[in-house]
Design a protein around this nucleic acid. Structure first.
Lengths: 335, 335
DNA sequence: TTGTAGGCGTTATCAT
DNA sequence: ATGATAACGCCTACAA
């Protein structure tokens, strides 16, 4: 078997507790013995057993990520892997381990969370999406287990979360289109159960109101997914409506991709802006203007909040807003 | 604190070992006590502590994934997240946990592997790429630690790995282009240090040889990355060469994307096939023909091999070949 | 069939 | 400054 703290103690001629103290840089240990113990550890190539340590500390230094696995191709998008990478940047720096699991439904997500908590594997959990009346969130609160959400939940501000300012971002996009001279601006979004949908619509509405532009409900399409098909369908409806829009604000790039297909089919090409700055946006023809939401930073900040709260550090804020920026491309630059 | 096996034992009026036996379905336990103990477990909402269990068993039921983080945008591609999802499908089924880490270099990868092993967190490791003289592989072998590689390593067949038949796949692509009547077929690949590069080139060469077509080295471009820029540069060289190709086999979609840009710039459009069936391939104009390598299945099979070997199950094969299929799209269908 | 006791490797409390 | 001891929660000979 592997070399243990006892082996080191024997070789150094001290007790296991002394070795433990050396490992943890306990101040009241003589330089002399510290040297001897360190030598013994090197000689034996000793490495602490993290599992035993976890048992003794009742803390695993591990964070669990709950990844959704939506029916559409949501998870094939770079958002998740980018956020996971962001999370890894901060967590690895802090010597935290990362666990992940994919779920196929909200129920399954709750199941994995329950399992992570009951088994004692993780110290905290990262949720990748905030739904309306989110069962994961209510379960985690019921269990009083540390977690952070990527995306602002409706449940209030005693929850840790990070998000973009979705209201502001869509406000900016809408204003940008208004500035270009368009007044009839169509809005295509994903399902209403997601906070991101409601917030982006809110930004759209606010922008129009602040410019004294009347809201025309017939210009607002709430899709039942974030897929291209949905975007296509919504756009088609808009095109065929009595009073079609002059420009489109889309709450997601993929919805915008679908919308562009519908427009091409109809032989028109209205200015359009998407969200998430997906790789394809850049290479589409015409290249799609899109809002970069910085998923890496979302991930980093999320796990930073979580880890700091696990370490009982004082959190100046329970929430972090990550800035977005509009990447202007061909679908709007020529107007 | 959480309820332990001892609490259950007390409530059921038995010893902890009896409870443990019930949990593990030990055959020599009376139906009577089994019932009582189960009742007690439910009443107390008992859940075994996985950390304590791991310590006692010296097995964590956890697999560690080592993700590369190449300088180009490799990791933003769906391959990794898809493979991770495939891994999760099998692992979650087998009640295995998954850990992951991103590395910025081969050295860092070795560091994370060392850490995973020394800390005792994981029972086995999944490598996401096989390089020439791969340091991760040699380190894992030195430590005699269980692992599996996605991608065939050069080190031989006592290693667990899964891969596509890259030789055959590129053989098929090349043959497909030959069938269409082209004889001067250009080849664009990524760096030579990756087995996938060497194997796909081999398939290309074999296909030409089998058709008695002379190999023209000037048609073969080995890029120094898998990025679009590289593809662009390689294609430009091919176009400007004395004797340019009539069609292109590309070992990667992104290389193909870059190549298409170069062709568009030059006002030509040679037939071209890529690899990986990236989402963008479908939506490019013209849509890119590409080989679907089935990353989900690669992940599933990889972790299946690893877990079975951890469970000392007899493995009929140490390697698995996952089938590929050519998705024909506009870049070749019209020829 | 069930209980006892020791061990997994580390930490923390209490002595000394 | 260092050592002995118990504890973390579970498993598994060995005994009974």
């Amino acid at each position: 078997m592997a070399v243990t703290i006892k082996d080191v103690a024997d070789r150094a001629g001290v007790s296991p507790s002394t070795v433990s103290r050396v490992i943890h840089n306990n101040p009241k240990i003589s330089e002399e013995t510290k040297k001897i113990v360190n030598k013994a550890m090197e000689d034996l190539k000793y490495h602490p057993n993290a599992v035993a340590r976890s048992l003794a500390n009742s803390s695993t230094q591990t964070i669990g990520l709950i990844l959704p696995n939506s029916s559409d191709d949501l998870f094939t998008r770079p958002f998740f892997i980018e956020a996971m990478r962001g999370i890894s940047i901060y967590a690895q720096n802090q010597k935290y381990n990362l666990m992940y699991c994919f779920s196929n439904s909200e129920e399954e997500e709750v199941g994995f969370i329950r399992n992570y908590i009951n088994s004692g594997w993780v110290d905290g959990i990262v949720l990748f999406t905030a739904r309306k009346e989110d069962k994961c969130i209510s379960y985690l609160r019921k269990r009083d287990f540390p977690f952070v959400v990527i995306g602002e939940p409706e449940e209030g501000d005693d929850i840790l979360w990070v998000d973009n300012d979705n209201v502001q971002s869509m406000y900016n996009v809408t204003s940008y289109l208004v500035e270009k001279g368009f007044r009839r601006i169509g809005l295509i979004t994903g399902p209403d159960q997601f906070a991101v949908t409601r917030n982006r619509r809110e930004g759209y509405l606010q922008a129009l109101k602040s410019r004294k532009i009347d809201i025309d409900e017939s210009l607002i399409r709430t899709g039942d997914s974030f897929s291209e098909e949905t975007g296509y369908r919504c756009m088609k409806e808009l095109i065929e409506s009595e009073n079609p829009p002059q420009a489109i604000a889309s709450a997601d790039d993929y919805l915008a991709f679908g919308a562009i297909s519908a427009m091409k089919e109809a032989g028109i090409l209205l200015p359009i802006v998407g969200f998430n700055n997906s790789p394809r946006a850049e290479f589409l023809s015409p290249a799609l203007s899109s809002v970069d939401i910085n998923p890496v930073l979302l991930g980093e900040n999320a796990v930073e909040l979580l880890i700091k709260s696990l370490q009982n550090k004082i959190l100046p804020f329970k929430n972090v807003i990550v800035g977005t920026r509009l990447i202007e491309r061909e679908t709007t630059s020529k107007y």
